[in-house]
Design a protein around this nucleic acid. Structure first.
Lengths: 235, 235
DNA sequence: CGAAATCTTGACCGATCTCAACTTACGTGG
DNA sequence: CCACGTAAGTTGAGATCGGTCAAGATTTCG
């Protein structure tokens, strides 16, 4: 559900926190003097938890790079159902359609926790990209990955059962974590359900099934211990 | 179903057809001398109908730009189900993940008709992009569009009924055609079903429903006359 | 500590998939 | 150019996964 009404929509504090630029991966191969140049066109903006960074349909003319915090990108269907598209964490960016053409945002962007965002105006970014093509290449590479990921996800939603999608998701998370055998969901189960293209009820049931089958053990509402990954992959 | 076995897999004739480069949208803003430079790194390759341009899992190290013909990009699920990702027509390109990192193809690419493809090696392309950043910007813009499209499509498959997805697809097609009220499906109904995330049977039924309701009239197996677009959009 | 949101569990229903048989269209070769 | 074989498309019947509605349990956070 959109929180358009439940939170103030104005942009939080806009302050020149120069250090933020250096923290952003797509820039961190540059020379100091180039950094200086970039800082001049970057604005740092803060969003409180629950604040909307932008709404679908609004004019899109900037690139948003997450410096700190977490941003949720989601669609809203006509009947009000929320469809999670992706989560942005440190270094991730969004607003891309804006870059080189007049356009409006396709989705909503909402801060899940207090967040700090670097914004670059589309026109400024274009100048930067033309001057420093290596940045363009970095963004291009990121886009490639996102596109491939998105297309895989579409295929998954279109052809696989919830059970399978969930299993793959958990294993993915587990492999990223690469630590203990306990993973922490990066979002609420409600959001995870919409990300996986299902409902909270069904998600809850499938997780319970996995637990009964001895594949996982839920600890609290965001932690899951993986007990039997091999069988999980066979569902 | 993949036709890996039913067709020869070698690359067709590789000939230097210089003119092909000038036909490709992402290059057509360049100066003649720049064109010359590009032609030196571009290979023109022909594929017969049914030939596989690449298989998922194969090393991906080139950009493929469709000069003539039509290429189908699709995933294959473990149980052999084909999931259509997109159709490439003149000017469209693929192979992007290849560009800046060692990677393998995520999908299969098969020529739907005899096709002519411009190939650029990833390393060569990277040099070009660094030298002519405007090309990078064009590709970036294209990626943005594709990503937005893919994410919308995921949402559509995850939240809407087949009936709705089909109606939207038909109207889209109709608006693109912008001519008479008869549209021609760009692919077989079998492929369209997989593109829409459903089965041929269900697609057939929904089209029959639309026909009964008086929204459309099917003529032959690829032509559809739109009779009542307004009501179609309300399903 | 308490309100509100998240999560869980149950019962039911329905859209869509599956399997199967049949019909139609296409393209290939004689 | 026609005939044939194969692939594509259609239609039917049955099964089921997952969505919806509803009530209750749990957690979070102010």
């Amino acid at each position: 559900m959109p929180k358009n009404n439940s939170c103030s929509h104005y942009l939080g504090s806009t302050h020149q926190h120069l250090g933020c630029v250096s923290l952003v991966p797509i820039f961190n191969h540059l020379e100091p003097e180039q950094m200086q140049e970039i800082m001049q066109v970057v604005r740092s903006v803060s969003f409180k938890k629950g604040e909307i960074m932008y709404n679908a349909g609004e004019l899109s003319d900037s690139l948003y790079i997450v410096n700190q915090g977490q941003i949720k990108i989601y669609h809203l269907t006509e009947d009000g159902k929320e469809q999670m598209i992706r989560l942005l964490n440190h270094g991730d960016f969004t607003g891309e359609l804006a870059l080189f053409q007049q356009s409006v945002h396709e989705a909503y962007a909402e801060a899940m926790v207090d967040s700090e965002i670097c914004m670059i105006n589309g026109a400024d970014l274009e100048k930067l990209l033309l001057k420093y093509p290596t940045i363009a290449l970095k963004i291009l590479k990121e886009f490639s990955n996102r596109l491939a990921h998105s297309e895989r996800h579409t295929t998954s939603v279109a052809t696989e059962r919830v059970e399978t999608r969930l299993a793959l998701y958990l294993v993915d998370l587990f492999e990223q974590a690469a630590g203990g055998q306990t993973i922490t969901l990066p979002m609420s189960k409600k959001d995870l359900a919409s990300f996986l293209g299902t409902t909270p009820e069904t998600l809850s049931r499938r997780l319970a099934d996995f637990e009964t089958a001895g594949y996982i053990e839920q600890q609290g509402q965001r932690n899951i211990k993986l007990l039997n990954i091999d069988d999980l992959l066979l569902v």
